[in-house]
Structures are given as structure tokens and as C-alpha cells.
Write a protein that binds this DNA or RNA. Sequence first.
DNA 1: CGGTTCAACAACGA
DNA 2: CTCGTTGTTGAACC
Lengths: 268, 268
Amino acid sequence: MPELPEIAVLARDMDRDLARREIAAVEVLQPKCLNVPPAEFESRLKGASITRVHAHGKWLKLETSRTWLFINLGMGGEVLLVDRTRLPEHWRLAFDLSDGACLVVNFWWFGYVHVSPDPADHPMVGRLGPHAIDVTLPQFEALLRGRRGSIKAFLLDQGNIAGIGNVYVQDPLFMARLHPLRGIATLSSEEIAALWHALRTTLQQSIDLGGAAFEVNLHGEHGRWGREHFLVAYREGKPCPVCATPLEKIRTGSTAGYICPACQRLPA
Amino acid sequence: MPELPEIAVLARDMDRDLARREIAAVEVLQPKCLNVPPAEFESRLKGASITRVHAHGKWLKLETSRTWLFINLGMGGEVLLVDRTRLPEHWRLAFDLSDGACLVVNFWWFGYVHVSPDPADHPMVGRLGPHAIDVTLPQFEALLRGRRGSIKAFLLDQGNIAGIGNVYVQDPLFMARLHPLRGIATLSSEEIAALWHALRTTLQQSIDLGGAAFEVNLHGEHGRWGREHFLVAYREGKPCPVCATPLEKIRTGSTAGYICPACQRLPA
DNA sequence: CGGTTCAACAACGA
DNA sequence: CTCGTTGTTGAACC
């Protein structure tokens, strides 16, 4: 579930708190999440020092003195900076830092912790679209021009634009008064602009509040972007904040969509 | 039907005949083939002068003083340079040049005429694999290594290698003695080399003959690569040119395949 | 007739 | 929709 805001907050804090610290040891409980054998993973990272930490969509990209390290938390999980003596109960992988702290990674189901010499060469990171919140309006319009299919499916495809998941897609579509299944080809420039503004607003608001309340940051603290900020997401049955029509939960492809049936109409 | 050879011939002639000529006006009969509203399309191109014309796979790329213009003729069509007073009967879009000539685009079903600031930003052109006839043997081998699925599906995917369609894929597979459904992973280096040679030979022969006989060039003249050059393509029931076994038409995914069942065997 | 492209969906696997 | 890959179908409409 961590999407762009949570990853952005994590990356910012990791960049500030981890820069120039050295990885003294690596312990892997779940080798399946790696892209190389555990022994090679360890040898590539042991002794490396963390240079910078970046966010790209839902991915964390750690630049080290020896290699790039990419982390994707999959359907949900945490990256925590703890004391070596206070490891959390569940974890998949831990990096001991030379000063006694420990960077612990956990996730519920599948997640990735990959090493790579270069982001462009990585089969997943290399194919990401631009980091959603960095996209300019002209860029956004160019990305959409000539595409077919629904606007929601487009936004969720990380190859088009990176960082938006099913949580953060709902309210921007409502703010732009767009039904999730609206065909991209039918969008006017005004609608595209409204959607772009709404996406930025929503993502930035969550970043400013430290991310979603149901996720935790590097120090285990919950974000402050809670359900009270949601306009339509996960509010089926409640009144639309604009017109009071009861909100609906619909199926949009294989995912759930939350809409106001009056404000977000699908042209016949 | 225009595939790499026809597009290469068109691009060469357009580059020679259109360079430095100015687009004075644009007329659009079918707005659906555009990626921007017609008014914007016109304003982006009116007054632009054509700088260079390139071929990339099945796409024509026109570099102008103001924007890029990408043309894909889909399942068949023409780009003709005519006198303004002699417009053909069917056309989708016409560019009036300032000297009185007219560049007319037509296609049977679906085609694209798109503007874009940069080929890399265009959702289709930006994802094309390398122009098929420019691919070297080592490159070809590298493209195939590690891929799964059938060799025919790979060759037809414009993201892997650009320019090969269902017409030009048939004879090279026969020449390399490969069944269209052969798994890529089972191909030997010798088979890959034979396929690469056969592809180049077939594409280059057609280019040298001005493209397929059922297509026309910029001046409405038919190519000279006709059915008499086909080895197995569209020749079901006729004897194999190598072993005289009757050729077969088979289904390969959603497309038709033409094979010699004796020369192109599928290993059990 | 065919031939094109992308999108949607399923199934599977990590 | 955590992410890929593969294959299939369907839809674009003179």
C-alpha cells in the first residue's frame, strides 16, 4: 500500500538520516526477495556506505558507494531504523550499520530488495514512468495524447507515470469530476489540466502530513493523512461532499473504485 | 500492409522531394486519426517547413521546423504527393504545400497522424525497437537471449524490433527452416544467424525493387516486389520450393501463418 | 479478405 | 494492482 507520498517521506528521511553511514553486515531471512544469491547480495553491500536515497514512484532507490539498492514494499510493509537490540518481531531483511543502528525491511507478502549497477538496467526500475509529482502539465498532456483505454487504468500503470496506486487515484478523479472508466481519448485539455492539479494537490497534501495514517515512517510513526482527508475514497454510502448524493463503490477492471455517481458521470 | 520496405522507400523519396518545403495549410477529414484536437493540429503545423523525413519500422517520422509529425498507415494506405487540383478520391488528411503541391494521406481502416515535440515522448514511436534492417547479428542475438514465447510473436512485436509485419515475416521463417511457433529459447545460434540473414535478404530485396507490388510510392507507382518473389507466403496448397510438399496455411495466435510442414517442423 | 495497434483480461510465478 | 511475462480477445470504422 505505500504509494508515492509514503515513499517520498521515507526517502527524504532516509536521505537525511542515513547518508554517509556504512553497511557493516547484512542478514537475509527471505532470499526470495533478492535478485542475486544471498552471498552475492551480502558481498556487494558489505562495507558500502549509503550516499543518497531517492524516491521513484513506489520504489526507494539507495545509492551506495558500491552499487544501487532498490526496495519495493509490495502490498505493504515498512522500512524502520532501529537499535540492533530492538528488532521488530517480523522482518525479511536487516542491514547492520557500523554505528550499531539497524535498517530493517519488512513486507506482508512479496517485496523486492534488489541490487543493480544502474537504475536504467534494472528490469522494473528502468521501466518506470516519470515520478508522478514531478510531471509538469505539458508532460502530463503529452503522456496522455494518443493513448486509449480508461484514465484510471492509465494512472495505475507504473510504466506510464510512477507512484499512483488505488488509494491515491480516487480523490483526484473525483476532484476533476472524471469517472474512472472515462476514455482517455475523450478528455479535453481542461479536464486533463484539472486532473493534473488534483493529483499534485492530493499527493502533496499527504506528503506534507507525513503520508497515510495507516503507514509508518522510518521511525515507526504514523502519518497524519487520515480518512478525514478522503473525499470519496472508501466512503461508499456517505454523502458526496459536493452534492450530497450517496457515494458508490464500483468495480473498475480488477480494482475497486469510489465515486459520486452524480459528479462523475460517464458520457453515453 | 506497408511494412519496413515500403516505409523505407517512402521516407527516402519524401526526404529527397519534401525537404525545405513549407506546409501552408492542413485539411483533416478524419480527426480520429490525430492525437490532438484538429485546431491544435493545424496551428502546430501551419507555416512549418519540413526538414527531414525518416523511417522507423512502419512509422514515417517527419522532422519540421516546429514539431515532429509521425505517420502510421495501419493496415494499408498511401502517402501521395499530388497537384492540389488532382486530389485522389479517398483521403483522410491533406497538407497543402506553399508551392501548390499537396501531400495527401489515406488509409483503409486505421492509421495515425500524430504531432509530438520529441520521438522519445511519443507513446508509440518512443517504444519502438530498433529499425529491423539496421540490426546487426550480435544485436539480434542479444535481443533474443532470455526471451520466451514464439519466434513469430517476437518478430511481430514492434517493441522488440521495428518494421516486420505479417507479410514479411513468412518467407524469412521459411528460409531459416523455423516453424513460426518455435520457442525462442530452443533456437540455436545457427538458427538465429540463418533467420537474421533471411530477414535482411528479404527486406533488402523488396527495398531494391521499390517495395511491394500491391503498394504505391509517393508518386503513385507500384513496387516491383510481387507474388512471384514469395516463397511460402500466401501460397497455401502450392508445392514447397525446396521439397515440393504442399504448403499450408495455419493459425499462429491471431494471425495467419504460411509454412512448409516438412521444412518447418516443430520439435515435439 | 487481409493487415495494424493498443487495451483488457486471464493465468501464473516470484 | 507488488511486480513481470505470456497469450487471447476485442475494438478502433471508410
